[in-house]
Design a protein around this nucleic acid. Sequence first.
DNA 1: TCAAAAGTGTTTGTGGTACACCCATGG
DNA 2: CCATGGGTGTACCACAAACACTTTTGA
Lengths: 235, 235
Amino acid sequence: MSHVSVAVTVDIVIFALRDNDLQVLLVKRKYPPYQGLWAIPGGYVQANESLEDAAARELREETGISVENPANGAAHPGATVPYIEQLYTFGDPGRDPRGRVITVAYFALVPAPLAIQAGSDASDAEWKPVRSLPRMAFDHAQIVRYALKRLRYKLEYSAVGFQLLPPVFTLSELQRAYETILGETLDKRNFRRRILQAQVIEETGQYQAGEGRPAMLYRFREDAVAEVKARRLFP
Amino acid sequence: MSHVSVAVTVDIVIFALRDNDLQVLLVKRKYPPYQGLWAIPGGYVQANESLEDAAARELREETGISVENPANGAAHPGATVPYIEQLYTFGDPGRDPRGRVITVAYFALVPAPLAIQAGSDASDAEWKPVRSLPRMAFDHAQIVRYALKRLRYKLEYSAVGFQLLPPVFTLSELQRAYETILGETLDKRNFRRRILQAQVIEETGQYQAGEGRPAMLYRFREDAVAEVKARRLFP
DNA sequence: TCAAAAGTGTTTGTGGTACACCCATGG
DNA sequence: CCATGGGTGTACCACAAACACTTTTGA
């Protein structure tokens, strides 16, 4: 009847768009169990930190990206704040051969330009495309699958998609991001109309030069962060 | 760096429709902390049970209602299986004055006829209307609020609502259930058209006599359990 | 002047919402 | 025959989906 000893970890599925692909940050395990296999970053919850703090700490340790506490107001101008959200808690006995370990899984979205440095230096962390993930330790394959499902789902009725883009972006870049994540192509005219009607982005007045005609640069509207009320908002 | 000792509990928000009202099952705490205050049922996760098993056990201990394992196929005919789903994991340090306790919260829906006996006998468990909840222990008020939000939300795009009704029911009963949970009135003709179009219920061929004209009895279609694809399905 | 990407409107179908009366039964 | 709750249809509007060409720039 009394309580048994269990360890609690926080694991975090970190998504980013890189090379026109949706990728996840994985770390290679140095020690048993599952030595040499890939895993999602995570670690034990410390005595005096909340679960959210633990997840933010893991994200910082693995990517160098800090999550500003929403309580402190918005980040410095131009900084896109990474998005973190609790995903699910996995606690089957036997999911960790060392004993009873329950993990609270989070998922995070980091904006494209920040993701370029993250995990690249020295360490044993690497970005892997979700299309072709390696064999993974523990039940981490299941956790990533679930995170991907949730990401796709939220894309349809909220504005999380913007969290994967740089502070300013073109509509074509935004559409490519959506197509990459959803794994399907979208109609350009319908996409643009819906996004603009939703009033979640605004023109910067700047243009981006490129191969063809220059494209208007847009930014995400801060006051549109709140999840959108009813219906699918985006394709 | 190594892991600290934390206790893990499972708490469960149990909803039922009683007296034309949405109610939650609460237990009165016999010992400190928060002695005498109301709390949602819960307890420590045991060594060899999964989180789902722990939640099902709590539900059974508090209400006497067993959750059939979906792996074992459908329940015996006529038995409406209570619905259980993981809600969120709460783990702020300081949420329990005795030490670090992380709780994995679940929410459950039990069908009306079963709810009548549950918690009524002797024990310190009582059904309380969500409209007027008493002061509650720990962060349980927050947990119930969140569960209610999730329930209302899911009602709009899935078929969970049926889990609160008896195995057969009239369309008016179903509509009243929706109205009770959502806290708003719905148009009768639109409600009926949408529910019937969705093909989640079917006629039983039986009628229920009452004050006025007898009403067709319907049952929930087993093969419609899956969550529904796009759009709001129900009012 | 050509390649490459940006940008732009209209039509058609479907689903949501608003709205008021007749029907079957028991007392 | 009347009170009570059960049951039904239509018109309008908003939004989703399908669909192809013109514009601007750099090479």
